[in-house]
Design a protein around this nucleic acid. Structure first.
Lengths: 206, 206, 206, 206
DNA sequence: ACATAATCGAGACGGTACGTCAGGTCTTTTT
DNA sequence: AAAAAGACCTGACGTACCGTCTCGATTATGT
């Protein structure tokens, strides 16, 4: 009944998994995604190639999991359950500026920038990986916005007719655009302006 | 003083150039960017590999030029000088919806989608190519928006304090986000909503 | 202390080695040495190019080993230990004519001629390969002559002051000359005459 | 009636021919025959590739002519008509030792060694070039021996039944063997011994 | 002296093979 | 049974030359 060739996950070496994550992230940061090879990851991790092929279908998948793991670790370190949740101080603009500024900082941080770009780029061109990327990384983050915006609608800060999904894209889309295409620098000021412009458009009608 | 090893462009074979453009675009559309190889392009174009390496530094560069050429041809076919210019009927919302709907159609057209994604993705990860992509493809298109928005400011349809650059990103950013990450379908309705939300935020203050 | 990058010979595929030998000899015989390529050998042997590059430094080295193997197999097939040894019937002239005629036959046999010429020619121009060729193929054969001539000296058939090494060259040198330069046909009669002339010069002094 | 595509030799550039000879010989001496390319010769000679392809069918042909020209120049410099003729002082052994020693010196001279080996090797493997090599370079030299040996037969120094052609090979063959296969050093002493052994065999019968 | 035609230097072109790198599979030995 | 190691076949890389083919620019006669 079961897949004839799926390996036994219970016997999997945790040691190797960690080493592979580390090697993958390090190599992508150091030499870029294109020059990162599975052989290179295996060598750097002190691992046989087959150990990678046994557990992951592609280089991109390795990196995606590695990055997911990195994010999970970061969250764990920071504590709480509602780790990525957008604060609700009652001041919607302030709350959004806070998270958008944090996002700007993250995107400007080379440690995250390199693997993020690699994954985003791969997802753009590879629907398989793209949907994984969207589902596991992107969407959860976007849901934070959805919840905060719905709260704002409940509080009367945003027009109830507005689609929260589109509202959120008004904030996140432009940021992503600048980041991906490197057209202009990503600054806190830019984040603030974005929030200002967007909220004016989303405010309840007079 | 001059570059020691650049080939003589006056002797270049126009025939080969065209064949290479065609082959590159065809292969990217048919098999995807990753599986498109320089060898494959050369073979399909009936051209020696060296003829590609002589004139382009990379697969991405070939594709960029091919796509640029494709766009140029399309424009030429359509005639006029201000080919890509955003119409100015006096009704800003209508004008923007018109172009944004057209953009949606283009992004949904497989002929353009495949090479565009490939170039965008490559640019995300490869700054060299990214800046070429931005400069030669993206920026010129964005300038159409800048001009139309400035005209709207002059006409009193948009707040004069608004930065046209950021205004444009409010429209283009979300569209790109959906396209690149394939989160939700790109429709005319979405384009319209985007214009509505954004323009409310950019309108002159009461 | 050991060579840092030599492959593990114990894991070597015997199957591939044999296939490469066969392909190399076949191609050299069929199309000549110059038109024989490593890619061609690999293709014909159903082997990856790297498998050739892993174990041999050059096309010539492959062919040398292949030929050595061919010779070894031939000897094995013929049986005995003293396979190539020159017979000693007591009649020196007859014994030498016997082997020289056999050599003539071999040099006239296309199966041996093509690879032999290829190796000899390569050795002429490439000292590295040349010394291998001399050491592994040529020299062992010449030693048979040395031993037979020394026996003849012991038997009083050849002047004891004669240098066996030079004596042997008196026989083998002319044969090789005709073969390599194709000046005149190689016949049994020629071999006989060579022996006659040479032995007269090497006979004990009256 | 004439070949439709043979170039007009009267218009040929002497300048280019010389430059090509020089470049070819220099490159063969410096880098070896295999690494000498037609493109390299053309570049070094400051000549278009076509100028080589127009007048010669192959790299080997260029080198052969270049070498022939070199030899012709050397002879011209040394003067006389019977330049290569073997002296006839009445003492056959001495005369032969004289020329064989000279041959040894030439074969030990790197200026001649490199191109000679290249041509000889190419001739071994390429019958076309081989016959040219034999006819234009080798045979004329061998004829000197034939003539001297015939004179010796007339003078009663050599058995009249001896075939001069084979006699000559008894001298030249061994020398060539050592040279081509680099088995043992080529010395004057070796040349002398060769003459001694051979002449003993060729002397008139008691 | 000049017209004119072939040779010349240059080098782009369609190809073939080079020697290298990595992909993904398979096998052997170790843990 | 999974893991480290690494040989294997495959296929693409980017480079070097092949021999052919255009390009002006430059001779070198033959009228």
């Amino acid at each position: 009944m079961s897949d004839t060739k799926s390996p036994d996950a219970t016997r999997r070496s945790e040691r190797s998994r960690r080493a592979i994550y580390d090697a993958a992230l390090a190599l992508v940061s150091e030499t870029g995604y294109a020059k990162t090879t599975i052989e290179g990851i295996a060598a750097r991790a002190g691992v046989g190639k087959q150990t990678i092929y046994r557990w992951w279908p592609s280089k991109a998948a390795v990196l995606l999991e590695a990055f997911l793991d990195l994010a999970a670790q970061a969250n764990e370190a920071l504590g709480g359950d509602d780790e990525g949740e957008i604060p609700d101080t009652g001041d919607l603009a302030a709350d959004l500026k806070y998270v958008l500024r944090a996002t700007v900082d993250e995107l400007n941080n080379p440690t995250y920038d390199a693997p993020s770009r690699a994954l985003a780029a791969e997802g753009v061109v590879n629907p398989e990986l793209g949907s994984q990327f969207a589902e596991k990384l992107l969407e959860p983050q976007l849901q934070y916005y959805v919840r905060r915006i719905e709260a704002a609608q409940a509080a009367g800060d945003i027009d109830p007719d507005v689609d929260p999904r589109i509202a959120l894209e008004l904030l996140v889309g432009p940021l992503n655009h600048r980041w991906l295409h490197r057209t202009l620098p990503l600054t806190h000021a830019y984040a603030d302006t974005l929030v200002d412009y967007a909220l004016r458009g989303l405010a309840p009608r007079a």
